[in-house]
Design a binder for these strands. Structure first.
Lengths: 223, 223
DNA sequence: CGGACCCACACTGGATCCAAAATCCGATCC
DNA sequence: GGATCGGATTTTGGATCCAGTGTGGGTCCG
């Protein structure tokens, strides 16, 4: 294994493979901000053609991870600390709306779904499976968002989550953070069961705030 | 001219041409919700290859105008009244944030830029040039948003505007609406000059609310 | 010696071509 | 007669190939 291309198991489609690869390359700093993305070279490195690469880049452009200039190509946009804070601020605004609406129509079914997701979070967290935990965590939060009945809002929030995906795994890599997440979810569930929407919102804001604080520290060190 | 392909003057790049064409086809109802998009046929109709078409579709997917299923293709998502209302609600949340921050740092330069954009709006509005007015209107609002210093937030708002672009021209098509917009902009400028942020926010909310009300009426009739 | 012009190269945008997945439809078996 | 399996067809996903634009360097002229 001398080439730089990382091998993953079972990339379902070349496009998705390239997309995931690019995300981690950008957020991981292997592709540096401002740097132009040479399609030919990168495609060769990832052993795909330029077509799926370009489609993946279009997605990333929509998420704001890269910028595109006609006839000049794609460039990596900086995900600075400010950007990260911005994303979290926007999430705060949008998720508050989603949760407020979801809380208004919370029922037994929703609570069941949330509890199931939560036990999955705990299982994965306990066994130290970081990606499984990130997955289950996402299911937990989005089950709640989905209940808002605002599909476009949920989509938007999803894009925001995507754009900071790589950072999230950084967060889950630390065991104390994993424990904390489990506790916080429980508190949110309690608040929802009690019908205390404001409390749930406050808890979720804290939940995000802690993540951003930790990430600021980690990123501040590495850059 | 017997073929169905619409001819526009000077499409800068095939991709952008296809993108604009698709937007109006979807929002104009020529491509119906739920309908699958046959790439080959559509590409032939627009007289381009499937490559730029697919890239345009990826953009629209990011905006939520179409959905994509692996190996099954793209499908038109419905932009129902509910969706429209959702988009405007999200805009309300995000634009409020942008304007709040922008107002906090309003200065003479910003006011000058806004006034210039506004006189452009009036000129275009007076001469009945709908697209020029829509352009100038956008410049007006985004000059304000830009002043927030939150580039990602501004980008997001931009995407939301894009996703309802075709509807906006519907709104500007009616002369009384054009007059109203001019007046409302003046009021917003006054509030900003006076440093009354809350008033500006209220005015902008009304601005949007009126647009959505009118659009509801128009769409309600045509569908 | 400095600057404008021009040409070759590099890279993107687009078109065409190929492979693989999904669907549709008929034949076969129970 | 109904359900299921299998192959032909359609359609997408991907690879290769071509054209047009932007860029950088070299040259020629002032």
């Amino acid at each position: 294994m001398t080439n730089g291309a990382v091998q993953r198991r079972r990339p379902p489609t070349a496009q998705q493979y390239v997309l995931a690869e690019l995300r981690s390359a950008i957020t991981g700093g292997r592709l540096r901000p401002g740097e132009p993305i040479r399609q030919d070279a990168l495609a060769a490195r990832l052993e795909v053609s330029r077509v799926p690469l370009r489609e993946a880049l279009k997605i990333l452009e929509g998420e704001g991870l890269v910028e595109h200039k006609v006839h000049r190509g794609y460039f990596v946009t900086e995900l600075s600390l400010d950007d990260l804070r911005e994303v979290y601020r926007i999430r705060e605004l949008l998720e508050a709306e989603a949760v407020r609406r979801a809380a208004a129509r919370t029922d037994a079914d929703l609570l069941t779904v949330l509890e199931r997701a939560q036990s999955e979070v705990e299982r994965a967290g306990g066994s130290g499976d970081v990606t499984a935990m990130a997955d289950a965590n996402r299911r937990f939060h989005f089950a709640l968002f989905d209940a808002s009945g605002m599909p476009r809002l949920v989509r938007l929030i999803g894009t925001l989550w995507d754009s900071t995906d790589a950072y999230r795994s950084l967060y889950y890599a630390e065991p104390p953070n994993r424990e904390r997440v489990v506790d916080e979810h429980h508190a949110v569930l309690d608040a929802l069961r009690a019908g205390d929407t404001d409390e749930a919102l406050r808890l979720l804001d804290r939940h995000r705030a802690h993540a951003v604080t930790r990430l600021e520290r980690v990123l501040g060190k590495s850059r």
